[in-house]
Design a protein around this nucleic acid. Sequence first.
RNA 1: GCGAGGGUUGCCAAGCCAGGUCAAAGGCGCUGGAUUCAGGGUCCAGUCGCGCAGGCGUUCGAGGGUUCAAAUCCCUUCCCUCGCACCA
Length: 928
Amino acid sequence: MSEFDLRKFEEEAHERWTHAFEPDPSDTEKFYLNVAFPYPSGAMHVGHGRTYIVPDVVARFWRMKGKQVLFPMAFHVTGAPVVGISKRIARQDEKTIRLYRDLYRVPQNVLDSFTDPLTIVRHFAAEYQRVMTDCGLSIDWRRRFITVDPTYSRFIEWQWKHLYEAGHVIKGAHPVRYCTVDDNPVGDHDLLEGDKAEVIRFTMVMFRYGDAFIPTATLRPETIHGVTNLWANPNVTYVRAIVDGKAWIVSKEAAEKLALQDHSVEIKEEVPGKSLIDKNVSHPLCGEVPILPADFVDPDMASGLVMSVPAHAPFDYIALRDLQQAGKYTTIKPIPLITVEGYGEIPAQDAVEKAGIRNQMDSRMDTLTQEIYSAEFSKGKLFAKYGGKPVRVARDEVAVLMTEKYDSVVMYEFDVRPVVCRCGNRVKVKILHDQWFLKYSDPEWKQQVSDHLKDMALVPPEVRVEFDRTVGWLKDWACTRRVGLGTRFPWDKTQLIEPLSDSTVYMAYYTIAHKIRDIDPKLLTPEVFDYIFLGKKSDELPEKKKLDAMRQEFLYWYPYDFRFSAKDLISNHLTFQLFHHVTVFERQNDKLPKGMVVFGMGLLNGAKMSSSKGNVFLLEDAVKEFGADTVRMFLMGSAEPWQDFDWRNELVLSTRKQIERFYNNVMETKDASGEPHDIDRWLASRLQAHIARTTTALDNFQTRQALQEAYFGIESDLKWYRRRLPEDCDGSRELHALCSVWVRLLAPFIPFTTEHLWKELAGEGLVSFAPWPVANPKLVNAKAELAEELLARTVEDIESILKLIQLKPKAITIALAPDWKEEIFRTVASAADKNTVVKEIMKDPAMRKRGKAATDAARQITTLIHRLPPHVIEPLVREPISEQDIFETAKTFLEQEFGVPVHITGAGESDLAKAATALPFKPAIIIE
RNA sequence: GCGAGGGUUGCCAAGCCAGGUCAAAGGCGCUGGAUUCAGGGUCCAGUCGCGCAGGCGUUCGAGGGUUCAAAUCCCUUCCCUCGCACCA
């Protein structure tokens, strides 16, 4: 008998699998699944392992179910990260070198070449392919590509032509977080501080100050009617600057910011804050008001000057009160302009006094401000003299009025400060021009996606709300970049198409990737792709024959059946691809994605896996140490795909033992030759349920559930089976069939071991293409299962009694319940209302005669029925079993189990007191 | 803050949608036993408390409620994880 040797199984299988998983269009029904392709900037860890093994298990499952399965793979190399990596390696950055040399184990000579970003992705793409193959992924590698292949770029250009023609690609200006030192937009990951900072749009209210303007930024322009004063910080030096030809007085910081926001700014002179205090300014909507001193005014916030509305802004109210308590400016009174339910005439005063706030430093001030802001926005109304409109309406109207008539402009600012770039510089808001967008905000486009989403299968179903929400929430997406790898943007060749925007319909490209390679990229005009993907004919198409073959591939495979990807891509990639699909394949609903499966994340020993933190276990090492099948089975069995899983070496080790146990089980039983017994009926019956449940689980992508059924379910049955065999028998010849089923059920999970076993079982061809087992209803034997259930329960009871009484038994008597109890059992079990059934039973004169014994029995039986599983009750009611026969047949077994004589008797015939406790399906047990 | 998911017996983790099969699957760990047995491997048993008869008691983040019956349904509350855009 051949030894359990995973390494050997792997070698054998790899040899036999060469070119086995390269499907072409055929008459067979297809199943196309794909997974978000990796960005190969480093080595694969076990977390990546699961991402690709799940679809492989599914692919193998459907392949065995007789489908023509396409599982392709490619590499996404578009974007900026490797550019940064190559730069860091070029300048010998310690951390980066350590990561690549020590953790990823890149040889020095290769590492030296990493100063070229493309070399990095090429190297790791090759590594990925090698490790994926080691894992037994049944990928069609003929279709592999990387996203900077010129051929792929032609495809992207074609895709974008359609997006553009549909009006979804627009050019515009856009406020972004910007670092003036790096001279680049700053993403979240590039921030040292303030990573949650949002860009807020303020209205600048322009107060007239002599021949100049003093702008104050506000989110509540309608409160202009209640302005009593301005605040300036006397300790700050402001500047007088010519902004767009007019004189403004703002803080120095503000002047710099305005220059980044489409204003021409020329600083003329400094203006000490002190010099502004007590001067007057005016605005057409509020008249003349004074400038008052306030230390809280931050020069780095908007213009560095603030308009004060003490009636509605708690901060303003307190600041004014503080001054007035010192005896200054006592003539100024808050001017209310909004009525709002739940607050008095002057809401800010009301709120501050109710809360008992003493000064500006009180920590509750922010919450209070937020409260009033929300209350007034949602429920507030302007006074009749200011138009009487709800705040939410008036706010925008006043803003428009100010912009049109009173010189107001927009200024962008962050909601939190400070915002600091990795380089240490303060980040500002810059308005970027020549910025291109995908107009995801377009309601019509959104609607198209929503409509299609309704028809899609989403796994697990809970993610549907997240998709719906994302579609609603998506705003315009900046889709071009200035740095990185990628395809040139057709309408501005200095820019590149952004990575999340060039990876949305490539699933269609997979169908032709292996064939389009033969054609010179120069010939790949949009017309060529229009023909392949949309069937649009046009004159003078090159290589017509090849194009026809590709058209045929596309028509055969598309749309894809399922796409697999991680949860965190819902809010961008997974939704983007739907937007792109509905446009590119407009009016071809039969080419739109059919389903998606969303993954959870991976943990390593309870902590999040992260390459940068070094908390990773390389997939390659795992495969070497434990074997590919072990890694696969562990990853599939420890959690369902959408749940988070935790990799722990000690658990993986026990998975390996399980595979070995399975292997030995099959090897030991496959050639059994005994005569079949009753217990074989039982085993076969149970097997049908395992087949059905494993199949259902895999139909639903529940890899864990499927493994529980296919592995543990069958294993524990086999254990009981062996226990029930007569002493001189090691199993019947029917076990061969069970082994065949078992091996096939586990083939998607542990393909290497099962491939070997399949050969040992003399199965035809590869197990990878063997027919998936189908449950045979004819082999389902409810009676046999019930009999074993009764027996197993009784054995368990006997064991637990023996353990308790701790005495050596001389004999065991099993006393069976009398017929009248059986009758009660059936009555109770089939009764709709189990509360009144006892009364019903006692109406029967025969029962009444039995008196208390009958009521007691009825009560006990009701409890018992509640405790028994439905799968026992139901057949029991439908078709009574003979407990007598069952125990008589199993008598030898019981005697063998317990080593003492076993007597079977009817409870009525026994004079032992205990016998009276016998119930149907729960015989009385008397141990002597 | 907004959105989503989650808190189960030493640990991991089923169960919850369709309330009684639940003292609660499976695995790990631990304890004991078997095995011509190396403190390793494999196998068996135990692993909330009490009990010399298959039982009883107390548990499923916390607090209430519905019900004959709740880990499962409803309400309140506390805690954790993830996503929130120019990044793959």
